[in-house]
Design a protein around this nucleic acid. Structure first.
Length: 428
RNA sequence: GGAGAGGUGCUGGAGUGGUCGAACAGGGCUGCCUGCUAAGCAGUUACACUGGCAAAACCGGUGUCGGGGGUUCGAAUCCCCCCCUCUCCGCCA
C-alpha cells in the first residue's frame, strides 16, 4: 500500500512510474475521489463536533437539575443527519480504499523498464552447464524410472499437479531442506522459524496476496483460513501491528514450509513434472530492515540464496526483473534461475524482493529509530532460499549419468548418506 | 464441541451511561539537582484520519479501551454477533 499523503503530493510522478508496469492506470480516479472523500469527512466531523458539544451541555444541565427535552430532540435530529452523511462518507472512503489496496508498489529506479520477461536483465552468471555426451533426460522421465517419483499414485490419492516421492526421492527432498536451513542459520545468521501453514485473511492482506489474488490461493471451507502460498506470508506477519526497536534490525528469519498454490490461469504451463505443483516445499528467507539499509540487505539476501546453488555446484544466472514482470508488492526483484539440462533452459528457483514499506504499511510493521524519535515503517524483504522441489529437479537433471544413475553432490552426501543413486534407485 | 473467567495506554492496574484518551503505580523521554551513579523535584509520554497551509512546526476537530453492529442527546461502561487468552469437561496426536 502506498502512503496517502505521499500519493496526494506526488501523484503524477507515481503514475508515471506505475505506467512502467503496464496495464491501466490504477490511480485514474484518485484525485477526484480524494477530494470528495475529504469534503464528506469535513462535513461529518463538523456535525459530530456540534453533537458532542450539545451532549456535554445536556450533562451540565442535568446535573443542575434542568429539563433537557428540547436539546435532546434537537440532537436526535442532528444524529439522523450525521447518519445519512456518514453513509455517503463511508462510500467515498471505501472507494478510495479500494484504489489504495489494489494499486501495486512503485518500482525502484534501479529496476529496468520493460514490458515482460524478455526485458529482464541478466546481472551475473555462475558455473558452466556440464558437458553431457548423451541426451539428458527430463526429471519427469528420470524420476519415475528411478522409482523415486510417482505421479500416477499422486493423481489417484489427490489429483493432477501433485507428486509422491519414494525412498531416496523423499530423502533427497529432506536432505535439501536440512542443508538449506543449516547453511542459513549457522553461516548466514538467520533465525529458524516454523510457522503455521494455515493463515488468516488479515495476514494475506498484509503481504499483498489479498484482495487481488484470491484466485491463486486455496481456502478452507467454513473458516477464515487459507493454505499458505509461501512462508513469506506467516513470517512477514509475525510482526504485524508491532513496533520493533531499532537495535533489533535487521531481523533475519529462515523458515521451511510447504506452499500451496491453485495455479489458476497457468493451465498450459509446465504441465509435466514437478516444476509447477499445487504443493511444494520451500525454505524462505525474510528480512525486516531499516529503510536506509534495505537495498544492501537485498543484495546480501540474494547472495545467501545463490550460495546454496554454489554449494550444490549447480550453474545459474541471476536476472533483475524489469518493471513489467515484477510482482504486485515488490519494488525490486532478482530472480535466480538454475540450469536444467533436461529442459535445456534456465528455470526460476528463487525470487528475492525488496518491498520497501509497501507491506509494512499494510501490515503496520514499524520500528523506532531511537527512544525520542517517531516510529516509522520498516522495509520488508524476502526470497526463496531455495524452492526445494526445483532444487530436487536441478540435482537429478544436472547430476544424471549416461547409465541412468544420479551422482549426489558433495554437499548433500552427509545428509543423504549416499554418493550416488543407482539406476535402480538404490543408495550407493 | 460444552461450561466458566477474562481481553483497557509501553507495562501493571482502576474505571458499570455524562466534562474519560482514560485514576494510580511503574517504565521511557526532557529539564533541574548531583563530582559520578542512585535517590529526589518538575514537565512530558499512543495512533490514524482531517481542517487551518503548498509543506514543516504548531493549533483545532473526529475516531480509536479485542473486532464489528445496535440502544442513547451522550457508551470503556448497556444489548447482539464474532475473535483471542486462561481454567475445567469431552475428544484427540
Amino acid at each position: 500500500m502506498l502512503d496517502l499523503a505521499f500519493l496526494r503530493n506526488n501523484l503524477e510522478a507515481v503514475e508515471a512510474r506505475l505506467a512502467l508496469r503496464g496495464g491501466d492506470n490504477p490511480l485514474a480516479g484518485f484525485r477526484e475521489l480524494d477530494r470528495q472523500r475529504r469534503a464528506a469527512i469535513t462535513e461529518v466531523e463538523r456535525l459530530k463536533a456540534q453533537r458532542n458539544a450539545g451532549s456535554e451541555e445536556i450533562g451540565r444541565l442535568r446535573r443542575a437539575g434542568q429539563d433537557t427535552a428540547a436539546q435532546q430532540a434537537r440532537l436526535r435530529e442532528l444524529g439522523e443527519q450525521i447518519k445519512t452523511l456518514e453513509e455517503a462518507a463511508k462510500q467515498h472512503d471505501a472507494a478510495l480504499d479500494e484504489i489504495l489496496r489494489t494499486t501495486p508498489n512503485v518500482p525502484h529506479e534501479s529496476a529496468p523498464a520493460g514490458a515482460g520477461p524478455e526485458q529482464n536483465v541478466e546481472v551475473r552468471r555462475w558455473g558452466k552447464p556440464r558437458e553431457m555426451h548423451f541426451t539428458p533426460q527430463a526429471h519427469w522421465d528420470l524420476g519415475p524410472s528411478l522409482g523415486i517419483l510417482d505421479f500416477d499414485r499422486a493423481a489417484k490419492i489427490t489429483g493432477a499437479r501433485f507428486a509422491v516421492y519414494w525412498d531416496l526421492g523423499a530423502k533427497l527432498e529432506r536432505a535439501l531442506m536440512n542443508l538449506m536451513l543449516d547453511v542459513h542459520t549457522r553461516e548466514h545468521g538467520y533465525t529458524e522459524v516454523l510457522p503455521p501453514f494455515l493463515i488468516n485473511s488479515a495476514s494475506l492482506f498484509g503481504t499483498g496476496q489479498l484482495p487481488k489474488f484470491a484466485e491463486d490461493l486455496f481456502k478452507c471451507e467454513g473458516h477464515d483460513f487459507w493454505l499458505a502460498p509461501t512462508a513469506e506470508v506467516p513470517v512477514t506477519n509475525l510482526f504485524r501491528k508491532e513496533t520493533i526497536p531499532a537495535e533489533r534490525l535487521p531481523i533475519k528469519i529462515a523458515a521451511f514450509t510447504p506452499c500451496f498454490r491453485s495455479e489458476a490461469g497457468s493451465y498450459g504451463r509446465d504441465v509435466r513434472g514437478i516444476i509447477r505443483q499445487h504443493q511444494f516445499q520451500k525454505v524462505e528467507l525474510v528480512k525486516f530492515a531499516r529503510p536506509d539499509q534495505s537495498y544492501q540487505e537485498l543484495e546480501s539476501l540474494t547472495a545467501d540464496a545463490e550460495d546454496i546453488l554454489q554449494r550444490l555446484d549447480l550453474p545459474y544466472r541471476t536476472v533483475v526483473l524489469c518493471t513489467g514482470d515484477m510482482g504486485f508488492s515488490s519494488a525490486k526483484t532478482y530472480d535466480i534461475e538454475v540450469w536444467l539440462p533436461g529442459l535445456n533452459e534456465f528455470k526460476e528457483i528463487s525470487s528475492c524482493s525488496n518491498f520497501e514499506a509497501f507491506q509494512a504499511r499494510r501490515a503496520e510493521i514499524r520500528y523506532k529509530p531511537d527512544a525520542r524519535g517517531k516510529s516509522d515503517f520498516v522495509h520488508t524483504l524476502n526470497g526463496s532460499g531455495l524452492a526445494i522441489g526445483r532444487a530436487w529437479v536441478a540435482i537429478v537433471e544436472n547430476y544424471q549419468q549416461p547409465d541412468g544413475s544420479v551422482v549426489v553432490p558433495d554437499a548433500l552426501r552427509p545428509y543423504l548418506n549416499a554418493e550416488r543413486i543407482s539406476a535402480e534407485g538404490r543408495a550407493i
